[in-house]
């Protein structure tokens, strides 16, 4: 009796644990080989902020500026993507915002979309700034600090951008990214990195995965 109880409990624990993480990490393979043109996560890809040229390999990352894992991905992996893929002419790094972690990520995302509508260079500067100063932001100060940064460090008028963010003037772009994630059945976690090799979907990686993993998947050095 005791043995049976133990095995039942242990089995339930393992199954429950794996089921929980399956929900987090996905429930199975992701049907590699699908064309990037048909992949819902890549809808309107040309309109998204990117580094590098489309047409070859694509690293498509769904990121939340408030997510600590995204910050680590940005610090540890993105510089190598820029060196090994973007600058080497092997493909493009594309970002879609996915504000699901902390509340300040939502107004920050509105500000990012209002920024990229005016200047892609300013978008990347602001995106970097959010990660570099991530600990300093909260829901109450994020737009004020955003305005200060944009006015001081870019050619944009921060007050105009932030006013757009407050009124959610570019909410269509925010919602398009969320809709793309939902249409692709992505889990609610960030970062999520979708890899396309020569225009064909390879896999989806969850978390702050390494450049070596991405490079092996895409066949680049």
């Amino acid at each position: 009796m005791h043995r049976r109880r133990y095995l039942t409990l242990a089995g339930a624990g393992v199954v429950g644990g794996l089921a929980g993480c399956g929900g987090s990490g996905g429930s199975g393979g992701t049907s590699g080989g699908r064309s990037i043109d048909d992949h819902p996560a890549a809808a309107d890809l040309e309109e998204q902020p990117r580094q590098g040229d489309l047409g070859g390999n694509v690293v498509l990352a769904f990121e939340d500026p408030s997510c600590t894992q995204c910050r680590r991905f940005h610090e540890n992996t993105v510089p190598d993507i820029e060196d090994g893929i973007v600058d080497a002419g092997e493909g493009a790094y594309v970002v879609r915002t996915y504000p699901i972690i902390y509340p300040w990520g939502k107004p920050a995302t509105q500000a990012l979309e209002s920024t990229v509508a005016r200047s892609e260079g300013a978008f990347w500067a602001l995106f970097d700034h959010y990660f570099a100063e991530q600990d300093q932001f909260d829901e109450g100060n994020v737009l004020d600090r955003t305005e200060q940064f944009l006015s001081a460090s870019t050619d944009l008028d921060g007050s105009v951008v932030v006013e757009d963010a407050r009124t959610e003037a570019h909410d269509d772009a925010v919602q398009a990214d969320i809709a793309a994630a939902e249409a692709a059945d992505l889990p609610k976690q960030t970062p999520i990195v979708l890899l396309f090799r020569d225009g064909e979907f390879v896999t989806r990686a969850n978390g702050s995965v390494s450049y070596d993993l991405i490079a092996e998947a895409l066949g680049v050095s």
């Binding site: 005791h2 109880r5 133990y6 095995l7 409990l9 242990a10 339930a12 624990g13 393992v14 429950g16 644990g17 794996l18 929980g20 993480c21 929900g23 987090s24 990490g25 939340d64 997510c67 600590t68 894992q69 995204c70 699901i100 972690i101 889990p187 609610k188 976690q189 960030t190 970062p191 969850n206 978390g207 702050s208």
Partner: peptide, 24 residues
């Protein structure tokens, strides 16, 4: 037996959440 199974579940939850897998 129950404590061991609970440890496995908590361990799985822990790293999942640590990876921003808050959906779990």
């Amino acid at each position: 037996g129950g404590a061991g199974a609970a440890g496995v579940v908590l361990g799985t939850l822990g790293a999942g959440c640590a990876a921003c897998g808050s959906a779990v």
